[in-house]
Design a protein around this nucleic acid. Sequence first.
DNA 1: CCTGTTCTTGCACGTTTCTGCATGTATCGT
DNA 2: ACGATACATGCAGAAACGTGCAAGAACAGG
Lengths: 252, 252
Amino acid sequence: MLAAERRDHLLDLLASRGKIVAKDVAAELRISEDTVRRDLRDMASEGLCQRVYGGALPVSPAVADYGARQSVAPEGKRKVASVAAGLVRPGGVVILDGGTTALAVVHALPRDLDCTVITHSPTIAAALLDHPRAEVFMLGGRLFKHSAVACGAAAVEAAQNVSADLFLLGVTGVHPEAGLTTGDAEDAAMKRALAARAADTYVLASSEKIGTASRFRVLPWEEISGLITDRAPHDPVIEQLTTLGVEVLAAD
Amino acid sequence: MLAAERRDHLLDLLASRGKIVAKDVAAELRISEDTVRRDLRDMASEGLCQRVYGGALPVSPAVADYGARQSVAPEGKRKVASVAAGLVRPGGVVILDGGTTALAVVHALPRDLDCTVITHSPTIAAALLDHPRAEVFMLGGRLFKHSAVACGAAAVEAAQNVSADLFLLGVTGVHPEAGLTTGDAEDAAMKRALAARAADTYVLASSEKIGTASRFRVLPWEEISGLITDRAPHDPVIEQLTTLGVEVLAAD
DNA sequence: CCTGTTCTTGCACGTTTCTGCATGTATCGT
DNA sequence: ACGATACATGCAGAAACGTGCAAGAACAGG
């Protein structure tokens, strides 16, 4: 197998499975892990993948094809998404954030639900195409590759022209002191703008996010209506949030 | 074995196996590896293959896994898309219409091309996520389910704020008298708005669209710079278009 | 037919690139 | 805090590479 061929193969794997585990691929191709790591390092330096401990991930989560994605979406996200979908009333207007959990919400929505969805994520918008009764309003702007959503001044401005009953907010960190956080400043600003346009904001917080914090604050606890999680209600972090006055919706 | 004959053989191998290993071919043909390398070097300089350490690969990896791509986009659309992708210059700004042909253009774009793409299609935007160097600007608005693009007043307004070198326009009908047509009035208006924002407009017209007309006129012939089609140049309809002053780019 | 030229081909040489292993370090999960 | 795992780095052998050179074939002109 040629070196260049091997690299192509890695890109294929990345697209089809949505991730690469260096150890597994090395065993699969009968080559050393060092070689795989070297390839991944080079690819990452060219922006073709995102290097993580143990392997690599696609630069953007949206590249994994449908089937692979579904299997990647863990049980926790599905539970959270299901509860979140239940908050969407027929005839209601919901703002849907980007990210894999929000995508799971789309899949959890009844196919013939009559509602309006506002989103700044092309992935979410595309997924809603097979919900015939759902009206979709897309917020435009510069596409931010990292999280696959529209961000920046144009997107925030577009958000000013809409209103909704509900905002389903995705974050990367949920922490009692740090609050709701995400990894990018632009992204955080956009989420704030969206939250300001909805009567209620609920946080999609599958259990792996509970107790962690990222770099940028999105919102303080007072600004949100509730939090949806599959973490057990008697979990210390969850109890702490409850004492802060956060309504916690259990998903299990 | 003649030198020219040998080169043809190499091209055949490239097409059938999807790769060439210099060492193997040399042993197979009982010639020195040096000769094979020289051939590959020459072929690469002519753009007939991609030289890599140890051998060579096809210029486009899509040639190898032909079967997989085939099911996604028919041959005609792939050819048209390939020519259209060639119009996108590094560093350039292109407005990309929605639809399956435009999606094929995304797949035909070099993965590491450095350009800006403006689109009102969430599908196109999502597909561009795995082009790390491509800057994507999404035009928002009410999502029109039929064609999966943003339409309406908000979308047209958003379009007023952008400019581009090139607009790749998809239509459903290309007819000498009727002009360029599509099946929906809103969609047609949006396409007109986009065409007004680009210096050049090229029509993506795979052969099944030539000679047909839909309900709503998009643009007259004067407004477009050219038409890309896989229909034969001596086709009566194509010749008629040529006499109308339309530049026809052949894709085959 | 002979000769000189040009092109091709294979070989030799030094250089570059790749790969696996060993080492020590950093990071993760418990 | 600890062991386990993943990591970066340096190193050495192997493979691939480019280049110069010479032998040979093809060809043109005398």
